[in-house]
Design a protein around this nucleic acid. Sequence first.
DNA 1: ATTACTGCAAAGCATTTGCAAATGC
DNA 2: GCATTTGCAAATGCTTTGCAGTAAT
Lengths: 164, 164
Amino acid sequence: MNPLPDATDDHDAWVEFQQFLRRRGERITQPRRIILQRALQCRDHFRAEELAAALAQADRPVSRGTVYRTLGLLVEAGLLREIRDGDVHVHYEVTVGREHHEHMVCDRCGRFIEFSDADIAEQLDHACRKHNFHQRTHRIVIFGLCEKCAEKRGTGNPSPTGGG
Amino acid sequence: MNPLPDATDDHDAWVEFQQFLRRRGERITQPRRIILQRALQCRDHFRAEELAAALAQADRPVSRGTVYRTLGLLVEAGLLREIRDGDVHVHYEVTVGREHHEHMVCDRCGRFIEFSDADIAEQLDHACRKHNFHQRTHRIVIFGLCEKCAEKRGTGNPSPTGGG
DNA sequence: ATTACTGCAAAGCATTTGCAAATGC
DNA sequence: GCATTTGCAAATGCTTTGCAGTAAT
């Protein structure tokens, strides 16, 4: 939930979503447009609940139910990606206009670090061929400590949870 | 939830869990033993709710609350692994006595296919070094269609969701 | 004897859903 | 004009929690 001050490139995404809706015989509505625009303004991960809360008290409010329903559509349309790691609840991430990438999640500060590697993608393709599996997409998450938190650990700071 | 007819190798795991509990100054109890044994009998993924339901009506019943609490301990002890893909809710998988592996999840039938690849692990290590990230563990999931479901798709069967 | 653990049942919370009104086609 | 979508709020289902009794140390 870090809305950018300006969102000039949401037009393309909206056109793409319209095409998706038309293809599926579903309707192009104001709430759907509002939800997409707001989702695109989130530069990093966000939860449905956050977006719903933000839109409930927005200029042109949209209800919780509609937000949840529309996020599902946006995922199906390929404009958003579901993230199910590091938290019990689903997170979303904008994928439109971005290259596929993976994540490292810091156990300590919860920060997400993005990375991508063509070789890894190739290895996964290979594994799929071996198992006759037809890949649609994939997800890689590495858990551990980011550079800063590893340094803190090194200085002898106690773990945030590690009481005793 | 596929209990094996015989479970001869749960002794080692129980000893390991006991050691973990002692180290943490927690108590070795019957319910904890029962829960571990039952979890070990699940050859694939299971949900807390499933295990809780099974144990609630078991020979020596254990309550839901205790199951949830103990599963958390088992994860901390490293005997189970949390899985957060393919479903909103957490899945668990036995890790003790097994090598680390990754998953392919079928979009259609939900089946999990396990695979492992040393080269991929090496690539991930490399990526971590590049980002000064200290890996604790990682998780890879490939989404798509398994062999059988891909064949069904090929025969012209309509998609389960795709009305049109 | 002391203190943690369990069982129970109720609370908590994100998400889903039913239905009347509104909107898009 | 008709069917879909929305908004609202209540329901749902998994998970957590408080408290009194029980069991482990």
